Amino acid sequence: MITLPRPSVIVLDIEGTTSSTWFVHDTLYPYSRARFAEVLTREGDPDVERARGQIIEEAGLGGEVGVDKLVSALEGWLDNDEKRTPLKTLQGLIWAEGFAAGDLTSHFYADAIPAIRAWHEQGIDLTIFSSGSVNAQTAWFGNSPEGDLLPMFSGHFDTENAGPKKLASSYASIRAVLGVPAEQILFFSDLVEELDAARADGWGTVGVRRAGDQYFDQGVGDHPEISSFAQVTWQ
């Protein structure tokens, strides 16, 4: 157990923190991979149009750029687990449609949803910061095994509206939107680089280590460590 000052705001990472990274890799990634070509051919969708331009720029594509080249770039990033904004944008669109169609239901560790409900009932503001797009986040929390969790959350941040998760400046941007002092914000993540970046902006941090998950062996450095949200209590 760890005992911490009660925060005004809790900011949650998703993969490896509330939910298994392997579910994302084994279920959601293949689902999006099979649909990249279809979504890239859509006309009139501003998110798709913006993502096309970002793929061309980030992948350094020149000349005639067809769907095959765009898909190849996306698949390369996916294979390398790169947190590229256009990849996350398109995955978010695809996953949102999959959740809406009933093809997908999100995964949560057994302790995650009870903790989220308890913190919400305690009057703590809950926010998400994930490399997954805001569309992906809302689809994920809106289609949990226990139904729609979105009413318990007051904000959603991703790499497009906040910045990269391993930079302190991204956490400063989120803090400015939240409008509370850094010491009143508590961030949960499984990645030590993200925890370090949040702490560099003055946030409180908790490292989440889930046995068997992708980054378990990397540890969480010198941040307070838990394996379950049930291990957190307030002063």
Rank of each mutant, 00 (worst) to 15 (best):
F99C: 10
S106G: 03
S131I: 02
F153R: 08
E183H: 12
V208T: 01
R209W: 11
S72T: 14
N80M: 15
V180M: 07
R117Y: 07
E57Y: 15
R199E: 12
I2G: 03
V11R: 02
H156F: 15
L126T: 03
I174R: 01
R199K: 12
F99K: 15
Q91F: 06
A51C: 05
R50G: 15
L104A: 09
L74F: 11
E75F: 05
M152Y: 14
D125T: 13
V39Y: 00
A110K: 14
G44R: 04
G132P: 01
I10C: 06
N80G: 13
E38F: 08
E64T: 13
F157C: 02
R33A: 14
S227L: 04
F187W: 00
I174Q: 01
A115S: 06
L61F: 06
L4K: 06
R35A: 01
G102A: 08
Q231Y: 01
G102R: 09
V177S: 07
L4W: 02
K69L: 13
L150P: 05
L195E: 03
V220D: 01
E97N: 12
P181N: 06
A100N: 08
D81K: 14
F36M: 05
V71Q: 00
F141N: 01
W140V: 13
L186F: 02
F216P: 01
S189G: 06
L186W: 03
D79Y: 11
F187C: 10
K83A: 11
T18A: 02
L28I: 09
G142L: 10
I55Y: 02
A96G: 00
I94S: 00
P46W: 10
W22N: 11
P46H: 12
G179R: 08
R175T: 07
S8H: 14
I56V: 15
W77H: 02
A34F: 06
E97G: 04
A172P: 02
T233S: 12
T159A: 07
L28K: 00
S130Y: 07
T21D: 07
I128L: 12
D217A: 15
D222T: 11
T3D: 09
S227A: 11
E38N: 09
S8C: 13
Q122R: 12
F36H: 01
S20K: 02
V9L: 03
L74I: 04
E15S: 01
E194C: 08
R199M: 13
G212P: 05
A100I: 06
S169N: 10
H120R: 14
S131F: 06
L74H: 03
V220I: 15
P46Y: 12
T18R: 01
G202L: 09
H25T: 12
D47V: 14
S169I: 11
P7E: 11
V232K: 00
L150R: 12
V208I: 10
P7F: 11
